[in-house]
Design a protein around this nucleic acid. Structure first.
Lengths: 341, 341
DNA sequence: TTGGCTAATGCAAATGATTGCAATAAAGCT
DNA sequence: AGCTTTATTGCAATCATTTGCATTAGCCAA
């Protein structure tokens, strides 16, 4: 590039420089094969040389699209998942990256939302070409209704029965299975499951938990399943309750790292050693997991890949394609201390 | 509202229903006093009744504005602040809330950025009416240059000398002071300061640290100031180094909760008790701080207020006003365990 | 009645891009 | 040469809104 001339801001100007009509420039920049290849190349070069940038405002207006994707964080409802961990930010970052590649903006919606359907009359709806929901909360039914509005949408979450919307999510059954099997392999027999099985994702993890128990021929003790919300404080209380009731256990599968850390705190405060007396496995692999003491064995969901696939599915819908659900691989991150080696 | 008719999507339709021209509708909805008050009220009512929503795309196009604010997370550079804690998400949420009140969208830019000036030729720049930078990283100079581009901008960070851009930030000097004084009041005399004083904010907190020491007549031991990045793992190493060198200390002021938690982990692993042997104070008050064991005494920045003021300052600039910096109050959150009562 | 003044409203241009259709030029065919 | 076909390009309408200027209507005074 020889030198950058003063920037051309309108197609009209670029057309004059190139000695062609505005239509031709428009088509050339869009890669329309109607335009002679040589002309096209020449115009593209000129555009670069003069630092021409299309006016996206005008373009979007003409094309009746917004080039904006709304992201709704489902973190309103009490005892909702991940309210206080890194999951959302990481996912948000992953989505933003994936979107920027496609030249889309991200419109963040994060005001408390008691009913997803309220979105219909909001800016979120009108001012976006599609919506990504992070989590389902307990609004499965509303999400189903929402999908009837024919707005491109995709949901990070589990593939619930009767869903009419597209989901992308990690394999929760496998996640629960891996965590449980890890503890079983260490010889633990009395394993607590900490997570609210009324919520979609914990429920599936619990399935995996049961599957692993069955495989090893360990009988399930239903006193060991505890409906703790993802919020931390309840986890310590739950552990203390168990201890007080003299229900003995030597392992714990937790539905988030925060629950796990909270449980570990309660255990050590009660004089129990982790992992010698009780081995603990978390979920999510938040940054803290690796650095806490004892460092945390945990189940990792591939968030970057998740964000990318969410965007990809949404784009497909915007282009009129029909899409299918996607279940991502889940892996167990074994660290030395909490879950033993 | 009697009943909602099929939605009107164009002003033209609304104008027909109202029996006036499009111009009149436009002016009426904008509250233009040219239009007769009664007519205006009638049109506004009709708009509501027919659920008319203005086409913001067309409006923005005509008015040559984007109604989008870009938010740049300065989390690229190695050893940058807060890379892995909740701070960014909370701030992002606060900003998004404040923006939505003003009917602005949030465009998230979070791709690694080695030089802020690269933004000039990017979508972030063209497709937004203003930019909010979260953090300064080590790009103070570039931010200064950037401010010469006459794009409305505001920066969350500390009020460095020679800045030509508007900043909003918490009072880091006071933060460092409060944390240190708290430990001194508990009778601690050998207090470690953990934070990279080459970074703007830790540097100011360090100032507060020194001020508190001086006030109590405690001499500063420079071996106790340690340049740990905000990233956690280094903090444990640093603590272990100190212990190995037999440098004794009985307190620690940390520049983030993550550093604090990491330090606590290292201390307890070495057989030291927190807070009996070493009292620790963190910074940020992330959700985990209250639930970890021992629970963490920490310095809280008012993030919601911060987001609101950032937006307010930016709006003022967009409207052509000149703005001044803003320093927010900082408070110490005392919890029983880590920092003692 | 006519002219002047004001308050209220409408006309039409403008914003910057896209695209159906028409127009032109070049080439091929008989 | 004359006619048809094809490859390229340009014209002009269109998207929904805002706004300078013109227009109309109503009122009052002379």
């Amino acid at each position: 590039m020889a030198k950058s001339s003063p920037r051309l801001t309108k197609m009209e100007e670029l057309a004059k420089v190139a000695g062609v009509s505005v239509s031709t420039v428009s088509r050339a920049l869009a890669g329309n094969p109607l335009i002679n290849a040589k002309t096209r190349a020449r115009i593209v070069d000129l555009a670069a040389k003069h630092n021409y940038q299309i006016n996206e405002n005008a373009r979007n207006f003409r094309l009746q699209k917004t080039n904006v994707i709304a992201v709704v964080l489902m973190l309103d409802v009490k005892s909702e998942q991940h309210t206080s961990d890194m999951f959302f930010l990481e996912m948000l970052g992953a989505i933003a990256d994936a979107l920027s590649v496609q030249n889309y903006d991200l419109l963040l919606a994060n005001s408390p939302m008691t009913n997803v359907l309220d979105i219909h009359n909001s800016r979120i709806f009108r001012q976006s070409d599609g919506i990504i929901f992070i989590g389902q909360g307990n609004q499965h039914k509303q999400l189903n209704e929402f999908s009837d509005l024919d707005k491109p949408m995709v949901v990070w979450g589990s593939n619930l029965p009767d869903r009419r919307y597209c989901t992308v999510g990690a394999d929760n059954v496998v996640g629960g299975y891996l965590a449980t099997k890890h503890l079983l392999n260490l010889g633990r027999k009395h394993i607590v499951f900490m997570g609210d099985i009324n919520m979609p994702e914990p429920k599936q993890r619990f399935e995996g938990y049961l599957k692993a128990l069955k495989e090893k021929g360990v009988k399930f003790d239903k006193r060991l399943q505890i409906d703790v919300p993802f919020e931390m404080s309840h986890a310590s209380e739950a552990i203390n309750d168990l201890l007080q009731q003299k229900i003995s256990f030597d392992g714990a599968v937790c539905c988030s790292d925060l629950i796990a850390l909270s449980a570990i705190a309660a255990l050590t405060e009660s004089g129990l050693r982790v992992p010698e007396d009780v081995a603990v496995v978390g979920y999510d692999d938040i940054a803290l997991a690796g650095y806490s003491s004892p460092s945390l064995t945990t189940v990792r969901q591939n968030i970057v890949q998740g964000g990318r696939i969410l965007v990809q599915k949404l784009m497909a819908q915007i282009n009129g394609d029909t899409v299918t659900d996607s279940v991502l691989k889940t892996e167990l991150i074994v660290r030395r201390s909490s879950g033993a080696w």
